[in-house]
Simulated scan of single mutants.
Amino acid sequence: MSNITFSAEAFRQALLRLLPSGAIWSRDPDALPSRLAGVWGRTFFRNGARAANLLTDAFPATAVELLPEWEASLGLPDPCAGTDPTIASRQRQVVTRLTDSGGSSIAYFTAFAASLGYDITITEFVPARVDIMTVEEPLYDESWAYAWQVNAPASVVSYFEVDQSYVEEPLASWGSSALECELRARVPAHTIIIFSYSGQGAVGIWDAGIWGRDSWG
Rank of each mutant, 00 (worst) to 15 (best):
A14E: 09
W216L: 06
R27L: 03
R42P: 08
P138R: 09
P29G: 11
Q200W: 07
G209F: 00
A189R: 02
R92M: 11
I205N: 01
G103E: 02
G199L: 08
G82D: 03
A152F: 07
T123A: 05
A58T: 13
D214T: 05
I194T: 00
D141C: 01
R90Y: 13
I24E: 14
Y118T: 07
G217P: 09
G117Q: 05
V162S: 14
G217A: 11
L54G: 05
A114S: 12
R90V: 12
Q13F: 03
S215W: 02
P20Q: 15
D30A: 10
V130A: 08
D214V: 03
I24V: 11
L116E: 13
N53C: 06
D119M: 03
I87P: 03
I194N: 01
R50T: 10
Q91L: 09
T134A: 07
A31H: 11
H190D: 07
V135P: 04
S177Q: 12
D207R: 03
I87D: 15
F109D: 01
T96F: 06
A208D: 06
I122W: 00
E142A: 01
P79A: 12
D207L: 05
D119I: 03
R35H: 11
P153D: 09
G212K: 06
V167N: 14
L55W: 10
P77W: 11
W70F: 14
A14Y: 07
D119E: 10
S89F: 13
M133R: 01
D141P: 01
L16R: 14
W216C: 05
G48F: 09
I192T: 02
S215M: 04
P127C: 03
D214E: 08
G48C: 13
L171I: 03
M133G: 01
S173W: 11
N3R: 11
G199E: 03
R46F: 12
A154V: 14
I132A: 02
G75M: 09
L183R: 02
W40F: 15
T62S: 11
R42T: 13
A72G: 10
Y197T: 06
S101I: 04
F44G: 10
T110Q: 06
P138N: 03
W206M: 06
E124L: 00
P77N: 12
A128T: 02
G103A: 02
Q200Y: 07
I24W: 14
R129C: 00
E137R: 10
R46L: 12
Q91T: 04
D163C: 12
L32N: 11
S105W: 00
G175R: 12
V64D: 13
L67R: 07
L15I: 15
W174A: 09
A8N: 06
V126P: 00
E168F: 10
D30M: 07
D78K: 14
P138I: 07
W174Q: 15
T83C: 06
T56D: 14
Y159F: 15
P85T: 09
S196A: 08
W40G: 14
P68W: 13
A154F: 15
D78N: 11
A14N: 09
